[in-house]
Design a protein around this nucleic acid. Structure first.
Length: 596
RNA sequence: GCCGAGAUAGCUCAGUCGGUAGAGCAAACGGCUCAUAAUCGUUAGGUCGUGGGUCCGAGUCCCACUCUCGGCACCA
């Protein structure tokens, strides 16, 4: 049965290049998932893009004396290049600074406003007279009114942990003031638009309770969040949430609502809408009309998945579903699964742009190949707990697992066959029990790995495929075709035939994880078509501005998620090593760059 | 402070319904030579963060504590 599956990695900010932590929990698992689903024959739509809004971008722009749009465009282009090189096969990677996205975000806002899910409220807030702007909570510091800690933040005191209102702070200071400066602050009234989340509390809670297939941490976190202090039959966790900011950078308030030139829609309100607007844009960019609607319909064969980090759970299990309920009147599907990942650390510490404690994707891929990185990130995916990227682990896993176990299995089998069997798949004699057992195990691996990937247990799937590769190595050591060829050529050919079929099956099972090398192995096994598709970057012109997008173009024929049908006598491609062994010196060289 | 999670072999991580602790890699020993000195076999390696409790029996359930991560409503 063909399902319509949509899959979305979270939108990364483009206030800097992507680092390994950004791709580990979002783009890489998403890509393993969608490459599997496509091969499986499902109808897949996977879109996302750069989040061009938000304070990280405006802060970087201020620091560098540029406009937020310039900063966003620069790092968006870098993200496009990095994702392409990493083989992230999104149907569309766009960004949020497009006319299409602005229009759709405003449609959401307007519909929710007219239906009474958005209201306006006026509150006193601190205003920085010298910077001529209102101060969000985190932009205010002062003395804590409870414990008198001198550097309490506007929203919370780090010292005593109490939640605060910025107006409670003693001697509040603006964080826009440079060291030595004192900015004049005063309390002014400002009105903001609020999303009336309590109206969605009960339906969201009832919906979330049914999602027993979610990861335990995502489900319990969400249920607890929605329940709040309330009882099970009367959840009260949600409070109205301000969805506008006093900023110049972002999506403007729809003119139908009123004239608010100094306000913009809150970044996460517009970012999650990006899942929808990017779907629409994908169909437009490729002249596919209403094709995007297939995935935005409530039906039993329509499923959607969100690959995000643990810091974003609430936006994807509460806020975005609330927007979908309000905007769609029950006609838009809510996420089927939100397999949030924990965080990837780097050599025991958190990634930090300011401390230069990071491995940037574009720099990594300038020196090393994409598949080894994908392998390491998948094998070490932070599925249940934070994990750690270590250069020593990268070299070890590359050399001792990827090269030694899998690459070597392919290489030893193909080179030996190529040399001794006239560059063709040997024609097998009768298969014995051992031959059949291994062959069947490798065929079953497709099912096992496929189920693991569909259930978002990516490490399990990868591990299982490697288990079969190890068994195939053991099988070769037992059958010793390099010895039997001297006395019984057909027997040697049969063993090699079995392993070639195993390679063919594992190539498919590993394709979602290692698309480049699997495609290469596909050719070495003699296939002339392609397993993997190609990438295209395009500039999309709108009325007032252009934007760059990345798109994955699947191959014309789908090789399919199915057992090998390799036959004796068929010609093989020329064998070549699939992976490069890395020198141990890489560890020292790369580690010494950190923190500088 | 409140909420959600994590802590298991030297390293990276699994561990389902409570029933004699698992894998890969690293280590030691042995085999093989087709293969990128790759591979295969064997062995060794653990008071399961700490302290209590329930139970015939606890890595697993309950309580308390320690440390780490995330959220806690104008950072995203």
């Amino acid at each position: 049965m063909t399902n319509k599956i949509s899959s979305y990695p979270a939108w990364p900010y483009v206030n800097g290049p992507l680092h390994l932590g950004h791709v580990a929990g979002t783009f890489v698992p998403n890509d393993i998932f969608v490459r599997y689903q496509r091969l499986r024959g499902n109808d897949v739509l996977s879109v996302t893009g750069s989040d061009t809004h938000g304070t990280p971008v405006t802060v970087t722009a201020e620091e560098e004396g540029r406009t937020p749009r310039e900063v966003a465009e620069e790092y968006h282009a870098l993200a496009v290049a990095s994702l392409k090189q990493l083989g992230i096969s999104l149907n569309l990677y766009t960004h949020t600074d497009t006319e299409n996205h602005y229009r759709i975000t405003q449609q959401f806002f307007l519909k929710l406003f007219r239906d009474g899910y958005i209201f306006q409220q006026s509150d006193p807030q601190l205003y920085d007279v010298d910077a001529a702007r209102f101060l969000p909570d985190r932009y205010v510091e002062g003395e804590c009114p409870i414990c008198h800690y001198p550097r309490a933040r506007g929203d919370q005191c780090e010292n005593c942990g109490n939640l605060l209102d910025p107006l409670q702070l003693i001697n509040p200071r603006s964080r826009f003031a440079k060291p030595g400066e004192t900015h004049k602050l005063e309390v002014r009234e400002t009105s903001h638009f609020y999303l009336d989340l309590p109206k969605f509390n009960k339906p969201l809670y009832e919906w979330a309770k049914q999602q027993t297939h979610w990861k335990p941490n995502v489900l319990s976190f969400t249920l607890n969040y929605l329940r709040g202090e309330g009882a099970d039959e009367n959840p009260t966790g949600l409070k109205p949430r301000a969805i506008t900011r006093d900023l110049e950078w972002g999506v403007p308030i729809p003119p139908e609502v009123g004239n608010y030139p100094d306000k913009r829609i809150y970044v996460w309100f517009d970012a999650v809408i990006g899942y929808y607007s990017a779907s629409v844009e994908w169909a437009q960019d490729f002249d596919l009309g209403d094709a995007w609607k297939k995935w935005w319909t409530v039906a039993p064969d329509v499923q959607s998945f969100q690959f995000i980090g643990k810091d974003n759970i609430v936006f994807h299990t509460v806020i975005w579903p609330a927007l979908l309920l309000g905007f769609g009147d029950g006609k838009l599907p809510l996420p089927s699964n939100v397999p949030a990942n924990e965080f990837l650390n780097l050599e025991g510490r958190k990634f930090s742009k300011s401390a230069h404690w990071a491995v940037w994707v574009h720099e990594f891929l300038a020196t090393y190949d994409a598949d080894p990185l994908r392998y390491l990130l998948a094998a070490n995916l932070p599925e249940y707990a934070d994990t750690d990227f270590k250069w020593s682990e990268f070299v070890r896993r590359n050399n001792d697992e990827l090269v030694a176990t899998w690459g070597n299995l392919a290489n030893r089998t193909l080179t030996f066959t190529y040399k001794n069997f006239d560059k063709r798949v040997p024609t097998p004699g009768a298969l014995n029990d051992d031959d059949r057992a291994l062959l069947e195990k490798s065929e079953r691996a497709l099912q096992v790995v496929g189920e693991a990937i569909h259930a978002c247990r990516f490490r399990d799937g990868l591990q299982h495929a490697f288990e079969i590769a190890r068994e195939a190595n053991a099988y070769l050591n037992q059958t010793e075709p390099w010895k039997t060829i001297k006395v019984d050529r057909e027997r040697a050919g049969t063993s090699l035939y079995v392993v070639l079929r195993v390679l063919d099956n594992l190539k498919t099972a590993l394709y979602p994880y290692l698309p480049f090398s699997s495609n290469e192995l596909h050719h070495q096994l003699g296939y002339t078509d392609d397993l993997a598709g190609t990438f295209e970057t395009r500039t999309i012109a709108e009325e007032t501005r252009d934007h760059l997008v990345l798109a994955y173009i699947p191959p014309k024929t789908n090789a399919g998620w199915k057992p090998s049908a390799l036959r004796g006598g068929e010609p093989l491609g020329e064998p070549k090593a699939l992976f490069k062994k890395l020198d141990e010196s890489v560890i020292e060289i790369e580690t010494s760059k950190l923190g500088k």
